[in-house]
Amino acid sequence: MSLTLLNVIVAVVIAIAFAAANAAYLVWAERRGAARIQRRPGPNINGPFGLLQPPLDGIKLMTKQLMIPGGADKILFMVAPVLAMAPAIMSFVTIPFSEGIAAHNMELGVLVIFAFASMGAMAILFAGWGSRNKYSVMASVRAVSQNVSYEIPMLITAITVVMTTGSMDLKAISMAQSGGFWHWNIFPSLHSPLMPISFIIFFICSLAETNRAPFDLGEAESELVAGFHTEYGSMGFGLFFMGEYANIVIGASLTTILFLGGWDCPFGMFPGVWWFLLKIYLLIATFIWIRWTFPRTTIYGLLNLSWKILIPISLFNLLLTAGLLKVF
C-alpha cells in the first residue's frame, strides 16, 4: 500500500468523522437555537444541555427497520440517501481548515467542490422519483430546478473571486486574503468594488443550494408533507438529514474561504484553524437564525429571484471585475 493511498484513506475517514459529528451536533445546535428563538427549552433531558440527544437519535434511526414502499424503484430508493451524503463528505477532503490542515489540497479545489455539490440535486431527484409518491416527485422537481438555477449565480460569483485571486486552489485563495480583515474578499477592493454584493449573492445561493429556509421548497412541510424524503424512515432519512447538515458546513466553509479570509484573523494575530471554525459556525448560526425567522418563499418567487435578480447582478459584477482587472 503506497503512502498516498494510506493518506487518502485516513483523510477520508477523518472527513467522514468530521462530517458526521458536525451533522449530528448541528441538529442539536439547530434545535437548541430554534428553541432559544421560540422561547422554549429544546432538547435538555438527555445529558447536560441535551448533548446526548444526537447519539441517541442516531441509535434510534439505525435500529429502525428500513421500509421500502411498494412500487418504489428499489435501486434508486436505496442509492439516493447514499448519494446525498457521499458527495458532501468528499467535498470535505479538499477544504483547507488552516495552512497545515487540509486532507488533500487540490489545485482545482473550487471546481471539485462545485462538482460534488451539483451531485446533491441528483440524490434528491432519485429519492423523489424512486419513492413513487406524488408529493415526493413534486418536491424533487422543485428542488432540482432550484438547485440548477442557484448554481449559476453561485458559480459566477465564485469565478469573480477566482479571477481576482488568479487561482482555483482554495488554500491559495485563502492565503491571498491574509493579514487583517481589510484584505478579505468581502470588502471592496480596487479590482472588484461590488464584492459585498457578491458575498450576499453567494450567501443567498448557499442557503438555496442546501435547501434551507426560506428556500426549503423541496421539503415544504405544509404543502408537500416532507417533500422528497416523505417515504424515508430509519437511516435513509438519517442520511438525508446528515447530508443536509454536511452541505451546510461545506457552504459555510466555502463562503469563509472565498470571502472571509479563511483561517485569517481579522486583526492579524494568531491565524489558525480556530478562526476558520469560528467563522463557519457564525455563518451556520446565521443560517439557523434565518430559518427560524422567515416564512417560505414560493417556487416562482424563488426562481424569479435567481434568474431576474441574482444572475444579472452577478454577471454584471463578473464583467466589471474582468474589465477592472484588465485596466489596472
Binding site: A34, I37, Q38, R39, R40, A213, P214, D216, A220, E221, S222, W292, T293, F294, P295, R296
Partner: peptide
Amino acid sequence: FVMDLGGFSPLMY
C-alpha cells in the same frame, strides 16, 4: 397560518 407559510417561530409566541 404563519406556520402554513413556513415560518415556525410566530406560533410559539
